[in-house]
Computed example of a mutant assay.
Amino acid sequence: MARIVHALHNSASGLRTAWRTESAFRQEGMLTLVMLPLAFWLGHGGVERALLAGTVLLIPVVELLNTAVEYTVDRVSLERHELSKTAKDMGSAAVLLTLVLAFVVWCTILLSHF
């Protein structure tokens, strides 16, 4: 039980830090607060609701991972290096693809209702 409490404390600390320091995470968090209830209201059935909600929740998850990559690269060295740039660019690309995935899923499901 102590391990679970410790893990929850670490997770909460990570969320607080991301919220305080990362404007993209705050923007995506606000988007999530709006879109998540809409996912349950607009989705017809469990599968649609899960797809709509899941793609919305995936965005801040990937943003957190991207931020972790950026922090790690910066911790190793602030010196400009092509591999550091590539790692950061790939993290950013992962966020972009997650946004595209959410957009496609939402459009596909919502357009099928009309």
Score class of each variant (00 low, 15 high):
residue 30 M to Q: 11
residue 31 L to V: 11
residue 28 E to Y: 11
residue 50 A to F: 15
residue 49 R to N: 09
residue 32 T to H: 09
residue 39 A to E: 09
residue 40 F to C: 04
residue 45 G to I: 00
residue 31 L to D: 08
residue 30 M to G: 12
residue 41 W to N: 00
residue 28 E to S: 11
residue 37 P to G: 08
residue 30 M to P: 00
residue 46 G to F: 08
residue 42 L to V: 00
residue 26 R to D: 05
residue 51 L to E: 06
residue 26 R to M: 05
residue 26 R to W: 05
residue 51 L to M: 12
residue 35 M to V: 06
residue 32 T to R: 07
residue 45 G to V: 03
residue 24 A to V: 13
residue 20 R to G: 06
residue 22 E to T: 04
residue 25 F to K: 09
residue 52 L to V: 08
residue 23 S to T: 15
residue 26 R to C: 04
residue 46 G to I: 06
residue 32 T to F: 10
residue 22 E to L: 08
residue 35 M to C: 13
residue 37 P to M: 12
residue 31 L to A: 15
residue 47 V to G: 04
residue 25 F to M: 15
residue 32 T to V: 11
residue 29 G to T: 12
residue 40 F to D: 00
residue 44 H to T: 03
residue 43 G to H: 02
residue 33 L to R: 14
residue 36 L to H: 00
residue 43 G to R: 01
residue 40 F to R: 02
residue 41 W to G: 01
residue 48 E to A: 07
residue 52 L to R: 03
residue 21 T to I: 06
residue 25 F to H: 15
residue 52 L to I: 03
residue 33 L to Q: 09
residue 45 G to N: 07
residue 27 Q to D: 03
residue 38 L to Y: 03
residue 34 V to T: 12
residue 34 V to L: 10
residue 36 L to I: 03
residue 31 L to N: 11
residue 25 F to Q: 11
residue 44 H to C: 02
residue 30 M to E: 10
residue 21 T to S: 09
residue 25 F to S: 08
residue 45 G to D: 02
residue 27 Q to A: 13
residue 28 E to N: 14
residue 41 W to T: 10
residue 37 P to A: 05
residue 44 H to I: 00
residue 38 L to H: 03
residue 51 L to D: 01
residue 49 R to V: 02
residue 39 A to R: 01
residue 32 T to N: 10
residue 38 L to T: 01
residue 35 M to S: 15
residue 42 L to Q: 06
residue 44 H to V: 04
residue 41 W to M: 07
residue 30 M to H: 09
residue 43 G to W: 00
residue 28 E to M: 12
residue 35 M to T: 07
residue 30 M to F: 15
residue 29 G to M: 12
residue 38 L to Q: 00
residue 45 G to P: 07
residue 27 Q to V: 13
residue 22 E to I: 08
residue 43 G to Y: 00
residue 47 V to K: 11
residue 30 M to N: 14
residue 22 E to Y: 08
residue 31 L to Q: 13
residue 23 S to C: 08
residue 52 L to W: 01
residue 37 P to F: 13
residue 29 G to W: 10
residue 35 M to Q: 08
residue 39 A to L: 06
residue 49 R to M: 13
residue 44 H to F: 02
residue 28 E to K: 11
residue 39 A to G: 14
residue 46 G to C: 02
residue 38 L to M: 14
residue 38 L to K: 02
residue 30 M to Y: 12
residue 41 W to S: 03
residue 42 L to F: 03
residue 21 T to L: 13
residue 41 W to R: 09
